[in-house]
Amino acid sequence: MPKQAVLLLAHGTPETVDDIPEYLRNVVSGRPLPEHVIEEIKHRYSLIGRSPLTDITLEQGKLVEAELAMEGIDAQVYVGMRNWKPYIPDVVRKMRADGVEEAAVLCLAPQNSRTSVGLYKRAVQAEAGALKIDFTEGWAYDPLLADAFAERLRAAEEKLTSELGSPVPVLFTAHSVPCRTIQTPAANEGQPRHWPGEGVDPYAQEAKHTAELVAARVSGIPKWWFAFQSQGASGGPWIGPTVEDTLTSIAAEGVKTLLLQPIGFLCDHVEILYDVDIAFKEYAKSLAIQLERPESLNTSLTLARSVASLAIRGLRRLQENEPPLA
């Protein structure tokens, strides 16, 4: 039987503030960034100390490996990052050197955008060689993923409800992407192509559907909204509505306490620790809103079971020579 493994892919994060210029060059594929953008990112990282994304992702990999072992599957879990160490190409080469012949590959960004998840896939394929891979394109609709987010949200909702004596509404968020990402090929005519294939990018629809699945699992939420956060500082328009505009509208409805749950991120990093915990909380305070958020998934065992379940399906498809799940 071929030697099988699992490869988890994530964004990556710089280890120090001094690493940020090189890291940002990786993020934008070498395109020049204005100096003020670089300095702003350095400032944000300095305020949170360091991003724990890599450490948490490596721990998530260990939890998934343990879940696989509980199912009787002896498969090592590798972790590769697109924009920082351990880089995806280096990890794929190590897998091949370790004798891995087949790998189930998942991007730890459940909602599929061809200009983000698609880049991860191409990075794996470029180094795969004879290594057979099954790439899970997206898993925004996975029930266990929704369960994991709902567990965190339910705990935060119950705590606030107990303190305030009434249930608290929720704002779900996901990372924004450039408008060109979700436009149809016709709308992008004459523009450089960033992904292979045709059709409308599914990201926005999948992000909103994840929010719907989570909200349906937490009883008692009086109302919820959805917004896109962390729009880029350059490169044209990004999709909305923004969190800031949505908070302004929510304040106009008289809301005084609000839970914000990012359902596009699986662990703490700068877009949560700075964007939510610092910037959005300060903006909400200026609108007389107390903004709180549930604990991030991080080392959630339900998340680990979700990823392990998807990996098992991928490994089985490889055994049966079936096409990957679209």
Score class of each variant (00 low, 15 high):
Pro143Glu: 07
Ala155Ile: 09
Ser162Tyr: 03
Gly165Val: 11
Ala150Lys: 02
Val177Tyr: 11
Ser176Glu: 06
Ser162Thr: 11
Ser162Pro: 02
Asp147His: 05
Val177Asp: 13
Phe135Asp: 02
Leu164Ser: 13
Val177Arg: 14
Ser166Pro: 00
Asp147Pro: 04
Glu151Cys: 03
Ile133Trp: 03
Ser166Tyr: 14
Ser176Asn: 07
Pro169Gly: 12
Ala146Lys: 04
Ala130Tyr: 13
Glu163Gly: 04
Val170Gln: 14
Glu157Trp: 10
Glu137Asn: 11
Val170Tyr: 13
Ala155Thr: 13
Tyr141Trp: 05
Thr136Asp: 03
Thr136Ile: 11
Lys159Thr: 11
Val170Cys: 11
Pro143Val: 03
Arg154Met: 07
Ala156Cys: 09
Thr136Pro: 00
Thr173Trp: 10
Pro169Thr: 11
Asp147Val: 03
Ser162Ala: 15
Pro167Leu: 09
Trp139Thr: 00
Ala130His: 14
Thr173Tyr: 12
Gly129Thr: 09
Arg154Asn: 13
Ala156Met: 08
Val168Ala: 05
Ile133Lys: 01
Arg152Val: 00
Thr136Asn: 06
Ala130Gly: 08
Leu145Ser: 00
Asp142Gly: 01
Ala130Phe: 10
Glu158Asn: 12
Ile133Asp: 00
Pro143His: 05
Gly129Tyr: 03
Asp134Lys: 01
Gly165Asn: 12
Ala146Phe: 01
Phe135Met: 01
Phe172Ala: 11
Leu144Val: 02
Pro169Ala: 10
Ile133Thr: 15
Thr173Ala: 08
Asp147Cys: 06
Ala130Gln: 14
Ala140Trp: 12
Lys159Leu: 13
Glu151Val: 06
Leu160Lys: 08
Ile133Gly: 00
Glu151Gly: 10
Pro169Asn: 08
Leu160Phe: 07
Glu158Thr: 10
Glu157Asn: 08
Ala150Met: 02
Pro167Gly: 13
Ile133Pro: 01
Val168Tyr: 04
Phe149Ser: 00
Glu157Ser: 15
Pro143Trp: 00
Leu171Arg: 07
Leu171Trp: 04
Glu157Lys: 10
Ala156Trp: 03
Gly138Val: 10
Thr161Asp: 08
Ile133Ser: 02
Asp147Trp: 01
Val177Pro: 11
Glu158Val: 08
Arg154Trp: 06
Leu164Asn: 13
Phe149Asn: 00
Thr136Glu: 09
Lys159Ser: 12
Gly138Arg: 15
Leu145Tyr: 04
Ser162Met: 02
Leu153Tyr: 05
Ala150Ser: 13
Thr136Gly: 06
Thr161Arg: 13
Val177Trp: 14
Thr161Cys: 09
Glu158Ala: 15
Asp142Asn: 08
Ser162Asn: 09
Ala156Ser: 11
Val170Glu: 10
Gly138Phe: 08
Ala156Tyr: 07
Ala156Arg: 12
Leu144Gly: 03
Phe172Leu: 11
Glu163Met: 10
Asp147Arg: 06
Ala130Ser: 15
Ser166His: 15
Lys132Pro: 02
Gly129Leu: 02
Ser176Trp: 06
Phe172Ser: 09
Ala140His: 15
Glu137Phe: 06
Glu137Thr: 12
Val170Lys: 14
Leu171Pro: 10
Ala150Glu: 02
Ser176Thr: 07
Ala148Asn: 08
Trp139Val: 01
Ala156Val: 07
Ala146Leu: 07
Ala140Pro: 03
Val177Ser: 11
Phe135Ala: 01
